[in-house]
């Protein structure tokens, strides 16, 4: 909760200098958000809240990454350093999909 409110406050203060953190949860074989708008330099933390393994990856031109597999309770962070649309999926469960829009 804290992590979600915090960036809103900071974002209202000034422009690009401050990077924000966002949390995306994986629960019941779904991402907690279908889409997310962030700014260049922001970090998204992907957390697994299911009692089995998930993966998070993107093969987008803007940001390509593969977080491997991780267990319940663990999380991994990705910094988005270029503007554009990033399609994020779980390779184990292809129905788990979301889009992150990285704005300048």
């Amino acid at each position: 909760m804290k992590k979600i409110i915090f960036p809103l406050l900071v974002a209202s203060l000034s422009s690009a200098a401050l990077a924000n953190d966002y949390l995306v949860d994986q629960k019941d074989k779904a991402f907690s958000k279908k889409s997310l708008k962030i700014k260049v330099g922001d970090t998204v933390e992907f957390r697994n809240s299911d009692p089995f393994f998930h993966n998070v990856f993107s093969l987008s031109d803007v940001k390509s990454f593969d977080l491997g597999s991780y267990a319940q309770g663990s999380s991994k962070k990705v910094v988005f350093d270029k503007p554009g649309k990033v399609e994020v999926e779980c390779s184990i469960h292809p129905q788990m999909q979301m889009v992150i829009e990285v704005e300048k």
Binding site: N55, S91, P94
Partner: peptide, 9 residues
Amino acid sequence: KPIKLMKGA
């Protein structure tokens, strides 16, 4: 899907 976890999956 050329993601390592998918090798042999």
